[in-house]
Design a protein around this nucleic acid. Structure first.
Lengths: 102, 102, 102, 102
DNA sequence: GAATGGTCCCATAGGC
DNA sequence: GCCTATGGGACCATTC
């Protein structure tokens, strides 16, 4: 995405910048906000790309004759395992904290 | 669904231990399936990590006094904008291809 | 909640009913819709009541010196257990279906 | 947090087996905790069941050609209305109490 | 008021 | 091609 596209909805500030004058409107705060927005948008693009990748891998597996639905079930189950383990540890920590073992 | 697929979650390692021979059960197919599962799980972990990052950035922005809900709105609008722009460009290319402008 | 309250947003039909004439506007369809809405609202009231009950039990437990946070953790963990078991069974069924054991 | 609370998830049954004596560890307190947990879990099951029921009713309505999304909107509006009415009644009662009208 | 967990709603994707 | 099912996101309530 181009910088221009990013500016499309906050264009007032940009226009001023284009005219070679420091931002009197919005100013530093606007700069900071824009920086946050762009960081987030960048991360979301990466996230979407990963989602694409995942879909592709499923497609590949399917092309090799594997059943996607079952694969999803297996993955979900493995995730439950991991979550359970994590939850157990969290509970243990809570207990230890409760009896003063920091 | 293949027999190998069905065996995927009862690990090859175990079977090997039982029979003392590498990959008699499931074999190459099981290996392939596992590879797919692991690739997917890896990608999903990365995706989750990015989701975490995004949350953190929002948190940071909030700490600087920005309203997260409004930020989300802005991002949504900008995304629509970007999608629209992309759509238009795609259409333009279609037209240009149609009239032989490569 | 009174019947009048339930009718507050679909009052047109009701008004006609009040005037001793069968519903020409909306008619049977409106009746059916209202019946659905009322069933749902009834169920949601019951659900809210249960949420209240749960809060009360936590309160009671707290009054007996139990730590609510830890209790929640334990409950969550037990739920994960249950989910995992259920998921395992679902996976097994998928497998059996896959090999034609209906 | 009490010691009994900490023992709640490692069941009394096991301890009993180990020591051959009923309820020496955890004891009455553990019993009480377990009772609380079970009451809560029972209530949560009922709550989930109701959520299921609600989904089913929506499904039924959909099968009759109603638009679920719109139905949700209507229900939300009617709820707001009900809340408002209740609020007003509460205020009225407060006033009446204030002027001694029991 | 900050953070966390829970619930609800929507949008997308896969199956029939 | 609909339609159900599932995952993700937003919102809200509650706790510390």
């Amino acid at each position: 995405m181009t910088e221009a596209a990013l500016n499309s909805y906050t264009s007032d500030d940009t226009k001023q910048a284009d005219e070679g004058k420091p931002q009197e409107v919005g100013g530093v705060t606007g700069q900071r906000l824009r920086a946050f927005l762009e960081r987030i948008e960048r991360l979301e693009e990466e996230k979407s790309a990963l989602a694409e990748d995942i879909k592709e891998v499923f497609g590949e597996a399917k092309a090799h004759g594997f059943d996607v639905k079952t694969m999803r079930k297996v993955i979900r189950l493995r995730k439950l395992d991991a979550d359970k383990r994590q939850e157990e540890e969290a509970l243990l920590e809570t207990y230890m904290a409760a009896i003063g073992m920091v």
